[in-house]
Design a protein around this nucleic acid. Sequence first.
DNA 1: CGGAAATCAACATTGTTTTATAGGAATTAT
DNA 2: ATAATTCCTATAAAACAATGTTGATTTCCG
Lengths: 150, 150
Amino acid sequence: MIKLSTKGRYGTRLMLNLARHYGNGADAVILKRIAEEERISIRYLEQIIIPLKINRLVKSVRGAGGGYSLARGPEDIRLSEILRAVEGNCCLVECLEDGSYCEFVGTCPTFDIWKGASDLLRDYFESLTLRDVMARAGKKGRKAQARAGR
Amino acid sequence: MIKLSTKGRYGTRLMLNLARHYGNGADAVILKRIAEEERISIRYLEQIIIPLKINRLVKSVRGAGGGYSLARGPEDIRLSEILRAVEGNCCLVECLEDGSYCEFVGTCPTFDIWKGASDLLRDYFESLTLRDVMARAGKKGRKAQARAGR
DNA sequence: CGGAAATCAACATTGTTTTATAGGAATTAT
DNA sequence: ATAATTCCTATAAAACAATGTTGATTTCCG
């Protein structure tokens, strides 16, 4: 119905992967490893991580022994920040942020509708931090194990 | 952040246009007129209206004096139906409906997140009928007139 | 009745954006 | 020096958006 781009999805998984390794002393993770764990092309991840770096959500260390790590704690990074970084400033539809995009802005009967949907999504992703997502995944993992153990 | 395709947007405007002409006796509207009013290429509208017809949201009458009209009253057509028709059965992400799409389904920590967002949108668009949207637009139009009148 | 006009219908083509891959340059630890 | 890694640029492939061309069906009007 409405598509979340691969950049948004992969970017989120990338950050979540970094979050899992956060705080382990030497916590820089090399992209190659993330690519293998998440089964995503490393070349594509390289492109996706650029805006994450620019927006100061990750830090990088170059050269041998280098890698990437979260710039802040997982409890302090919201999904909305990640999505905004990798997908640019765009909303559900262009006209929401670029008034010149369409001549009908101001009278368009659908404008408010898309805005409502866009706000819903923004609030939702604003309300979730990487830690929240990890906590959910933890519960899910345990449930899956319990099921498998029967 | 997340993109609503042009098919979804144009399809909705198309249906809304038909809704405005609904019930005027001979209420078949020709596509050329909608294309002009909405400033959308008629060729493109022709492609978009096909799935709307297949899903019985609009009726068509061929030949001279023909055109398109809503298959039901505006109060009985929900935005979710329109979007589903023109965009196919897709959700926010593929894996929500196609389990074979990704090997991590079942353990993926982001799955629940996308599903949550997808459900939010579905409920939102499910709750709005064409009549609702027209009613909103009516209020907005009057407000704009009031502002212009001062 | 018959043809012209209006309109929907179907298929092909082009352009743009997204997604993904490729090669190599710059940097750093050992 | 060498190997491991990030960083930068180019390009190929796929999906999406839009346009163009022709054909089929129905109505209108003489």
